[in-house]
Design a protein around this nucleic acid. Structure first.
Lengths: 235, 235
DNA sequence: GCAAAAGTGTTCGAGTTACACCCATGC
DNA sequence: GCATGGGTGTAACTCGAACACTTTTGC
């Protein structure tokens, strides 16, 4: 096997940008690193890919082990590969990063593998202190993940994954505002999302109990394509 | 180093989806494999990433070695990582695939490293016979690359990279039609692309010599963002 | 009744489409 | 002149932005 001597081995990891909306604010799940390197720093959940394991399966496995999140609780999509020499001081590691979006994800203490894990508002995690606060190149990966999520809300039903199983238009509206950080006209938003074919299916129920007129309850399809897209105000 | 024994090594490669418009048709550069596995089959140009080398630098290096294409001749962007166990029967290989778009790229025989290389129309390379004709999972990678390119023409100036250094609106129009495989109204296209701020800068020259009224010559910026985007007819 | 939240109507204007038309060149 | 391709005009239409308005509940 000529390559074995000629070409050096790499380690491959799967790292996860796990995003969820909590208290009307977009949060990322980060873990506190126990060991070196970057001991004590926050990092993306992740770990080594096994030799006979799919890249996607590795991401799902880490999702369960590090975050206690099941396959059906999120939608998962590949973000990119990051592999600068020296990004891990120990040896050459190429990480394949994944974006996971979910709703009502568990508080990380339960079933978590990592030393400590917590939900951090992305506004904080991406702030000017992020570069110093996050391990490896995870600040860049997180930024890429958040940007991907924002872009995906424009032309897919991904926002449904950030709501519960069922939700109202107001819930969906809050998700869009939280992820994009902009205000969207309530009335136009309502018409828009209810008008996109295949995105929202009414359950027939209404959500009562709160003040005001009861809202119709929908089920969403994260895999749906929104055409025409919902546009962010800026850009 | 605990990981060394615990986690097995991977090989990492950089594979390239190199696209160019030739004779009003989108083509991909493919190489004929000399050795096993998949000897004699067509494959994407690519090769092993070196231990101290950037992933992006590896892509540029392979671009030069396998296709004779320089850094400034294309725009390059990462596509995705592909790493199913068994995608290479020899050992575990994760490939990071890249999309490269260029114009007037060289005929592959000159300076090429591969046994044989040729430009293949993507319509042919993605056809029903592609799965059997291409090595590894390169049919899927190529399909993803072409789809990425098509999507990028909508909201970026990438099409400029598929024209020469300078070009006319008609040249650009031909590129869009070739890549998308649809007909676009000539008049509306003209207004659209000349109206997007920052995309086209007139050189002041006109292209004469052909029949008909001389066309104004422009320079394009592939990195420009097209807002609002140019929409494909379908979808 | 009143506040609050859900949902609808209406107007305006920007952008797209379809297609007619004019412009500048080679022969 | 006439064919050829470059470029502009224009009217109908679609869609999103803004915001006024109606509906349905809890208290």
């Amino acid at each position: 096997m000529a390559y074995s001597s000629e070409y050096p081995p790499f380690y491959v990891t799967a790292d996860l940008v796990i995003l969820s909306v909590r208290a009307d604010e977009l949060h990322a799940l980060l873990v506190r690193r126990g060991g070196e390197p970057y001991a004590g720093r926050l990092a993306l959940p992740g770990g080594f890919v096994e030799i006979d394991e799919n890249l996607e399966d590795a991401a799902y496995r880490e999702l369960g082990e590090e975050a206690g999140v099941g396959r059906d609780d999120v939608i998962l999509e590949q973000l990119a590969a990051y592999g600068d020499p020296g990004r891990d001081p120990r040896f050459r590691v190429v990480t394949v990063a994944w974006l996971a979006l979910g709703a009502n994800l568990p508080e990380p203490t339960a079933g978590s593998d990592a030393a400590e894990a917590r939900w951090v508002p992305v506004a904080e995690a991406l702030g000017p202190a992020a570069k110093a606060a996050l391990a490896f190149d995870h600040d860049r990966i997180l930024a890429d993940g958040v940007e991907r999520a924002r872009a995906k809300l424009e032309d897919t039903g991904y926002a449904a994954a950030l709501c519960g199983e069922t939700f109202t238009v107001a819930d969906l509206h809050a998700v869009y505002e939280a992820v994009w950080g902009v205000e969207l006209d309530r009335a136009n938003f309502h018409r828009k999302v209810t008008g996109v074919p295949g995105f929202l299916t009414p359950t027939g129920e209404v959500r009562e109990g709160a003040r005001g007129r009861p809202a119709r309850v929908y089920r969403g399809d994260p895999r749906a394509t929104l055409s025409p897209p919902i546009l962010r105000a800026d850009r």
